[in-house]
Simulated scan of single mutants.
Amino acid sequence: MSSPCDPQYAPVGDVGAALMMIDSRLKGIHDAKSGTDPEHQALTRQFAASLGPKEANDVLDGACTLIYMFMTWLRKAHEDQHKDAIAYVVPSLVASLRMMPKSIRPGTIPTMAGLVIAAGTGLSPNLWRKQYGDWTDEEMNALEATAFLLAEHINRITNDPDFATRMITEALSSADED
């Protein structure tokens, strides 16, 4: 029996824009050691501010699609090692989110853990979240941080700072070819 949270029923959203924002954060963090590029940060902020409600919702759905794709990859990678991805990923994610109290409200952390668990069990994160009502403004930073932390986790596992972005870009390219 299929679930109402099955990914086949979920909107994909604007994965490209969501990936651009996550990749920008990844590069910003890694470039912080050598000095961040204020012009790049300003362009990213300007892009986010230019989104209308429909476009913002599409980017939100795209971020959920990224979380789903990242967790699918993590689940497969952990299964190859006979490990449970949820047992390894969720505690680390929660601990990292808790270390950001200025930008991540503590009340949003259980929702983000739920999103990751939903994705890790093959459910659509955005449909799982939708059953509890509309997204809140406070959840937006937490959602972006969750996608960022999952991408960073993948990059650390692969020892490749661009692996997560490249993986999604290649998936998008192959989908366009189909």
Rank of each mutant, 00 (worst) to 15 (best):
S2C: 07
S2W: 07
P4V: 14
P4S: 13
C5H: 06
P7M: 07
V12P: 01
V12Y: 01
G13H: 06
D14S: 15
A17C: 11
M21D: 00
D23C: 02
L26Y: 01
K27D: 09
K27C: 06
G28W: 00
I29C: 03
I29M: 05
A32H: 11
K33G: 15
K33C: 10
S34H: 08
S34V: 07
S34M: 05
D37K: 05
H40R: 15
P53Y: 07
K54F: 05
A56M: 12
N57M: 06
D61Y: 05
D61V: 10
G62A: 11
G62N: 08
A63P: 07
C64V: 04
T65P: 10
T65W: 06
A77P: 03
A77M: 04
H78T: 11
H78I: 09
E79C: 10
Q81D: 09
A85D: 04
A85H: 00
I86K: 01
I86T: 13
A87E: 14
A87S: 12
V89S: 02
P91L: 06
L93H: 05
A95V: 05
S96A: 13
R98P: 04
R98E: 13
M99F: 11
M99D: 15
M99V: 07
M100I: 08
S103D: 12
S103V: 15
I104P: 00
G107M: 05
A118V: 01
A119H: 03
A119T: 13
A119L: 12
G120W: 00
P125D: 12
L127P: 01
W128C: 03
R129M: 12
Y132E: 09
D134W: 01
W135N: 13
T136H: 04
M140Q: 15
M140N: 13
N141I: 03
L143F: 04
L143D: 07
E144N: 14
A145W: 00
A145T: 04
A147Y: 00
A147K: 03
F148M: 12
I154P: 00
N155R: 00
N155F: 00
N159R: 06
D162N: 14
A164V: 08
I168C: 12
T169V: 14
E170T: 14
A171D: 06
A171T: 14
A171P: 03
S173D: 09
S174C: 09
D176T: 11
